[in-house]
């Protein structure tokens, strides 16, 4: 009897230790989701009768197809550009480890500190021929004035470049790290068999880090769909009106805070959440990235290595 009591007491302490995190998880993960769903059928100017038509109404909003075009156009550049360049950079860094590699990796991570509002500021300057650090390059392309660059049709490229630089350094380091997880025996064996550095990278290393590449693709895709800060700051603060309701999140923001249509904004949030959710589930269940056993085995074999 005493034993049971003691065990229960123990478990209460454990639960108490878990409680703060669990509270945050439920309060800011689960409840907002439920509230968003409940918010959708609320009555508003755009959805006067209320009800689940809110989904239909938001998709039929005249700004929605424009946002689809912008965001998909942006992602068609951003996702492949980032995937390919990051992997190429990581594989190149892995060709030879010299004392310089460390400094190169340091350099690559620097743009990651220039994100959000600061990224907008810096890229505004880079693309402003009067003060740009790449003035001569811009001039070589015949660009003498900022108005040649800052046009709505160019935004997909500009925003893709901005987000690429913000995120690339992190991913180069991660993929470089994933390459270090390949066992040195495999590399050695391939070299003995006469593999060139290029063949080694493409035929041996790349297939072996495939799951990390999938992981990256999913996160890039999910993140790209939710682009907000760059176009929002550009349109409110730098070139007024250049990117109004340009992305889905901006449209959602406008619905909520300009038209007071929280039902429509919540509906759009939920629509956008679906692809992110699918992506998350794919990574969790279809790759072994976060599989308990894989991680444990890996750690075990590492211990054995030592």
């Amino acid at each position: 009897m005493a034993k049971v009591k003691k065990y229960k007491q123990r478990n209460i302490l454990m639960k108490l230790m878990l409680a703060p995190y669990l509270f945050l998880l439920i309060a800011f993960g689960l409840i907002p989701l439920i509230m968003a769903v409940l918010e959708v059928p609320g009555e508003s100017l755009t959805n006067p009768d209320g009800g689940w038509d809110a989904f239909k109404i938001v998709v039929q909003d005249f700004r929605f197809p424009q946002a689809v075009k912008n965001v998909l156009g942006f992602m068609a550049i951003y996702v492949p550009l980032t995937l390919v360049l990051v992997i190429v950079m990581a594989l190149m860094l892995d060709v030879r480890h010299t004392k310089w590699s460390k400094y190169l990796r340091m350099a690559y991570i620097i743009p990651a500190s220039v994100s959000g509002a600061v990224a907008v500021l810096v890229w505004w300057a880079i693309l402003e021929p009067t003060i740009s650090p790449i003035k001569s390059v811009l001039n070589a392309f015949g660009i003498e004035s900022a108005t040649q660059i800052w046009q709505t049709k160019n935004l997909v490229y500009i925003i893709a470049i901005m987000t690429f630089f913000t995120i690339a350094g992190n991913w180069i380091l991660i993929q470089y790290g994933s390459l270090q997880s390949i066992s040195s025996e495999i590399i050695e064996a391939a070299r003995v068999d006469g593999c060139s550095a290029f063949q080694l990278a493409v035929r041996i290393k790349l297939p072996l880090i495939r799951k990390y590449v999938i992981y990256m693709a999913v996160l890039l895709f999910a993140g790209g769909l939710q682009i907000f800060v760059e176009p929002q700051l550009l349109t409110t603060s730098v070139y007024t009106g250049i990117a109004n309701a340009w992305s889905f999140d901006q449209l959602s923001y406008e619905l909520a805070f300009k038209s007071g249509d929280f039902g429509g904004a919540s509906a759009l949030s939920i629509i956008l959440l679906i692809p992110s959710m699918i992506g998350a589930l794919v990574v969790i269940f279809k790759t072994d990235m976060f599989d308990d056993k894989t991680i444990r085995n890996k750690q075990e074999s590492e211990k054995a290595d030592l």
Partner: peptide, 15 residues
């Protein structure tokens, strides 16, 4: 962890 944090911003505001 895998959902971009911005995805929940509007629902969080409502809450």
């Amino acid at each position: 962890m895998l959902i971009p944090p911005v995805a929940l911003v509007i629902p969080l505001f409502v809450m």
